[in-house]
């Protein structure tokens, strides 16, 4: 695991060159968004496609899947360039997060269950909707409920005492039999009946 801070010094050296590339890429994205410029997109493509391919190859260990990742990612860049927000981060980070999402879904594609969550639902970076955050997740009203004890006290005394000794005091069934001076078979049947009754009471309220 690498930490973010551990890379601070290395980042400084790289910063200058990155800023130039970032500015250029942001201009190109804006041109793609406004003018649907194929020339601008082709320049972005020749810069990012090899990087995406390298990322995909390392993640999947499979050239074909890596190429699928490149194509799906860059297809989204072509259609969704207007969703890039320069104030939120660099163009390459935006493109990386698109690729990260596609990787997340590609990894699950084959063994995917139909109800499984998709990357768009976790990181809706390609959603057209504006995120209007409402910070108050408040509830209202109240409802009356009962506690476990309530169920427990609905057991007949004979069963309740046996179950209490076994599950609360941690005694064995033989010890309960000895201390209450009742046959072991009776302890067993009372335990079984009590658990059955408790289960019914709990499930009834489910």
């Amino acid at each position: 695991m690498e930490t973010v801070s551990g890379h601070a010094s290395q980042r400084k050296v790289m910063k200058r060159a990155q800023q130039d590339t970032a500015e250029r890429a942001a201009e190109l994205l804006a041109t793609v968004a406004e003018k649907r410029s194929r020339a601008a997109f082709s320049e972005l493509f020749s810069h990012f496609a090899p990087k995406l391919q390298a990322y995909g190859t390392r993640q999947f260990g499979n050239e074909q899947t890596a190429m699928d990742l490149v194509q799906e990612t860059m297809t989204n860049v072509w259609h969704k360039a207007h969703l890039f927000k320069p104030d939120r981060g660099s163009p390459s980070t935006w493109i990386f997060t698109i690729a990260r999402n596609i990787r997340f879904d590609l990894l699950r594609k084959n063994k995917r269950r139909k109800d499984e969550i998709s990357a768009d639902e976790l990181w809706p970076i390609l959603s057209e909707q504006n995120d209007n955050l409402d910070d108050d997740y408040a509830l209202d009203h109240d409802v009356l409920m009962q506690e476990i004890k309530h169920y427990y006290h609905q057991l007949p005394d004979a069963q309740r005492i046996v179950v209490e000794k076994i599950y609360v005091e941690g005694k064995s069934q033989q010890e309960v039999s000895d201390s209450l001076n009742i046959p072991l078979g009776t302890v067993k049947s009372r335990t079984r009946l009590a658990l059955k009754k408790l289960k019914e009471l709990i499930v009834e309220h489910d």
């Binding site: 980042r11 990087k51 390298a54 990322y55 390392r58 390459s92 980070t93 493109i95």
Partner: peptide, 15 residues
């Protein structure tokens, strides 16, 4: 995310 991008896109990939 920025750090991951730098890490993963850093590789010298063949043009």
């Amino acid at each position: 995310e920025q750090h991951l991008c730098e890490k993963h896109f850093d590789e010298i990939a063949a043009k």
